[in-house]
Nucleic acid binder design. Structure first.
Length: 115
DNA sequence: TTGCTGACCGACG
DNA sequence: CCGTCGGCCAGCA
């Protein structure tokens, strides 16, 4: 049985599913998604899933996912420009020096919003 | 096939 | 306060 490649139950698929649930103008962290999935220690995998998010047919708002400090750690992977910052600012999120301002207000906790 | 790396996080000294 | 290390899983050479 090795057909378990990227089924809907796959860890990656879950990450994409949660990421797509992020509302407009909100952001979340890798650890929050990982914790929601029950694999808190696998926060790295969430980021890695975002790296492979482009392989998914459905678009994943990876720009709404940042690290715990609210820093745009993955901005370098968005076309090699500050596209990530522009996208977030386009949603009304204030960013300064790659750091989301008032991060606490725009933070979207999946475990709190979802059951 | 084996081994390393990766957009992180939390703990420890 | 800041540097370092381990852990989690999947993709790639």
């Amino acid at each position: 049985m090795k057909e378990n490649h990227q089924n809907e139950d796959s860890f990656f698929a879950k990450v994409y599913a949660v990421a797509r649930l992020i509302p407009y103008g909100r952001v979340t962290s890798y650890g929050a998604i990982a914790e929601y999935l029950g694999t808190k220690g696998s926060a790295r995998m969430v980021g890695w899933a975002m790296n492979s998010s482009h392989t998914q047919k459905l678009q994943v708002p990876a720009h709404r996912v940042v690290n715990r400090t609210g820093m745009l750690s993955g901005k370098h992977h968005f076309g090699g420009s500050n596209l990530m910052q522009e996208l977030l600012e386009s949603e009304g999120i204030k960013i300064e020096d790659d750091q989301i301002q008032n991060f606490d207000a725009v933070f979207w906790n999946p475990m709190k919003e979802l059951y």
